[in-house]
Simulated scan of single mutants.
Amino acid sequence: MKVTMADVAKKAGVSKSTVSQFINNRFEFMAEATKVKIEESIEELGYIPNNMARSLKKKESNTIGIIVANILHTFSNEIIRAIEDVCEEQGVHVFVCNADDDPKKERSYIKMLQAKQVDGLIIFPTVGNEDVYASLRKSNFPIVFLDRKTEGAYYPTIMLDNHKASEIAINQCVKAGKMKIAIVSTSIKRKVVPRIERIEGYKRRMKELNLAYEESWIVATERTKIVEDLDRLWLADERPNAFYAINDLALMELMKFIKKNSLTIPQDVAVIGLDDSPFLEVFTPPITVITQPTFQMGKEAAQLLLKIIQAKDIEDDYEVMRHIPRLLKRESV
């Protein structure tokens, strides 16, 4: 049979209201011995509080949702960890969902998480759900956007200065004497903002430095086709002598291409990536990267969302908050 709060109260020899106070962390006037009795009774009986009923009564659930665009990225995992760390300190639980850059999937997760009475959401927004965001904003539902901005200014947004990241990457290649620089990205078909901005930054910096590049040197395709496109590029008369991979998945495919063609880094080609990963430091040679302050970004997003939830209001006047990337110099360029 289901264990109730009354069962816990009876076993501990206290009232139901005292057990309720314990469950809701209200210990101001509770003796230590009473706390121990209730805790032991809950453990012995296997009592599980009815969080849904509590959230309906309090009109808050102490839960938030995170909808990431692609959970395969190291960036996403580090952001999630930072958010969870902040929420754990505040006694807030977290649901994590992976949208796979699919607006339909994201829309479904938003509905599901709202049905679960989450207090707010942190979303890596996809392209195609502007109507959903507008509706949520109109209802004053707490949300913080991460990594990507939307067409409309619906919610506070935290992301990287992607143009600056590409500028740093190109500058480092030029400093190493590598002037023929290609860029490698996963697909921009779904108009993923960071990827588009990083390619824009690449083009801009190459133009500013009067560096020529072939259109074929801009490889932006599905992950499974990157090596194929790089093979075609390598057959051309004019080859690059440096590659800039704008995320960790693109970098992995680039490294497959380099291994396949027995190229030496940095003698044959220099390599620079965006986003660090543990294996890059132990690679031979260690790979130079542009890093994002992922833990800081995740922490800020969580703190901001919890602040909005507590205030029960979203300010209309805010800007997109851009974080500055930094170079982590190793031996590949």
Rank of each mutant, 00 (worst) to 15 (best):
Cys173Lys: 06
Val144Gly: 00
Asp313Cys: 15
Gly177Val: 01
Ile79Tyr: 06
Ile64Glu: 01
Pro293Asp: 09
Pro194Met: 01
Asn171Arg: 10
Ile170Trp: 07
Thr288Asn: 03
Asn50Ala: 00
Thr74Asp: 15
Gln267Glu: 14
Arg26Glu: 11
Ala250Val: 06
Glu32Thr: 07
Pro293Arg: 13
Thr288Tyr: 06
Gln90Cys: 12
Gln267Ala: 11
Ile79Glu: 00
Trp234Val: 04
Gly65Met: 00
Arg322Thr: 11
Tyr244Val: 06
Thr186Phe: 08
Ser61Ile: 00
Ile183Ser: 03
Arg198Ala: 01
Asp313Gly: 12
Thr288Val: 06
Ile183Asn: 01
Asp85Thr: 14
Gln303Tyr: 09
Cys173Phe: 11
Phe295Asp: 13
Lys2Pro: 12
Lys180Phe: 09
Arg232Phe: 15
Ile314Ala: 08
Gly120Leu: 02
Ile110Lys: 03
Ile79Leu: 09
Asp102Met: 04
Glu300Gln: 14
Glu78Leu: 14
Gln267Ser: 14
Leu56Cys: 02
Leu113Asn: 02
Asn162Gly: 09
Asp231Tyr: 05
Lys37Val: 02
Asn24Ser: 02
Val193Phe: 10
Gly13Phe: 08
Arg205Ile: 12
Asn62Cys: 04
Val68Ala: 06
Glu253Met: 03
Ile48Thr: 10
Ser15Met: 07
Glu331Ile: 02
Val192Lys: 09
Glu197Ala: 04
Asn50Gln: 03
Ile246Asp: 02
Ile258Met: 02
Lys104Trp: 11
Val219Cys: 05
Ile168Gly: 08
Phe295Glu: 15
Ile122Val: 00
Thr288Asp: 08
Ser187Gly: 02
Met112Thr: 07
Ile80His: 07
Ala169Trp: 03
Glu215Ser: 09
Leu235His: 09
Val333Gln: 10
Arg239Val: 01
Lys16Ser: 11
Arg326Ile: 11
Glu228Met: 10
Ser277Arg: 13
Ser15His: 06
Leu146Val: 10
Ser17Ala: 14
Met179Glu: 15
Thr74Asn: 15
Thr294Cys: 14
Asp119Val: 00
Trp217Cys: 03
Thr291Asp: 12
Ile183Phe: 05
Gly91Lys: 07
Glu281Met: 12
Ile218Phe: 08
Asp229Gly: 07
Ile314Gln: 05
Lys256Met: 12
Ile42Phe: 08
Thr294Ala: 15
His73Lys: 09
Arg190Glu: 15
Gly273Val: 04
Met112Ala: 10
Lys59Thr: 09
His323Trp: 14
Pro266Arg: 01
Asp131Cys: 05
Val184Gln: 03
Gly91Tyr: 03
Asp101His: 11
Gly65Ile: 00
Leu136Thr: 02
Gln172Cys: 08
Asp101Leu: 05
Glu43Ile: 09
Glu60Asn: 13
Thr157Glu: 03
Ser108Arg: 12
Ala6Gln: 12
Thr34Gln: 04
Pro103Tyr: 01
Lys259Arg: 14
His163Glu: 13
Asp101Thr: 10
Leu72Trp: 13
Glu89Trp: 06
Ser17Glu: 12
Thr4Phe: 11
Lys178Val: 03
Met30Gln: 05
Lys35Gln: 08
Phe283Cys: 07
